[in-house]
């Protein structure tokens, strides 16, 4: 029987590997959802009724149902129903499916934040710019953009922090992220079995990452606090 101290390097190694996968999913989701969210926001504010209807319905469905179900559907549906598994086998296929599900899900949340930011700017700002002879693009870049960013940062921060924890949902399609790695020592892996403490240990990873993120995001918020 090994002591916990002896098991530690093995467990840390496995958790680190899982954590890398967690981080990859986190960053890929942000990278995809930031721009896609903007596209969806534009769609939901479009003057075309059809486009607006479609995007708003999509946002309603995605925000109204659990991310876990979306993950399961995106991962299994093509294979089971069309007998056409589009996700490659193994870990890389699971990662692709998870990334797609997360990007779509988070893009929908982001789109509502963008929309709030854009629509929250008083029309007076636009009109003041127009009356001063500015072009529409000058008004956007010189007047509205920074105000939008300021309005968006706090709700966006909340979503980003939620995303750190949400990545663990990818466990449901057996993506080998940090929870999966921690759990493996319960069933048995690398000579360690029946150990629950590695799972608790994963919480430290989350706490530290969220702590760092919170500090960074608060700094950004502070930098924008010179105006109201």
């Amino acid at each position: 029987m090994q002591t916990i101290l002896q098991q530690m390097p093995i467990v840390i190694g496995a958790l680190n590997t899982g954590f890398v996968q967690t981080l990859r999913l986190f960053f890929v989701t942000l990278l995809g959802a930031f721009p896609l969210g903007l596209v969806i926001a534009m769609g939901s504010m479009s003057r075309l009724h059809v486009l607006r209807g479609i995007t708003r319905t999509l946002v309603w469905i995605i925000r109204g149902s659990p991310l876990m179900i979306q993950l399961l559907i995106i991962y299994y549906f093509p294979g089971l129903v069309f007998h056409a598994p589009i996700w490659g086998g193994g870990e890389s296929g699971r990662f692709q499916a998870a990334a797609v599900a997360f990007i779509i899900n988070y893009a929908c949340y982001f789109s509502e934040i963008y929309r709030g930011g854009i629509q929250g700017i008083p029309v007076g700002q636009e009109e003041a710019g127009l009356v001063l002879g500015m072009t529409h693009s000058q008004i956007f870049f010189k007047v509205k953009l920074l105000q939008m960013i300021k309005a968006i940062v706090p709700p966006m921060s909340n979503e980003i922090i939620t995303l750190v924890k949400d990545t663990s949902l990818a466990r449901i399609i057996a993506l080998q992220e940090i929870i999966w790695a921690g759990q493996s020592f319960m069933k048995g892996s690398q000579g360690i079995s029946g150990a629950i403490w590695p799972l608790f240990f994963t919480a430290v990873y989350y706490l530290v990452s969220i702590g760092i993120l919170t500090i960074l995001l608060q700094r950004l918020e502070k930098r924008l606090s010179y105006f109201r």
């Binding site: 007076g124 002879g133 007047v143």
Partner: peptide, 25 residues
């Protein structure tokens, strides 16, 4: 065109009831 309207606009100035200053400047 936008440019034309902007040129015409500049004959007038408008001071709003609610100021509409740009807060970040």
């Amino acid at each position: 065109r936008e440019k034309e309207i902007r040129r015409k606009r500049l004959h007038f100035g408008l001071v709003f009831q609610s100021f509409n200053l740009f807060p970040q400047y």
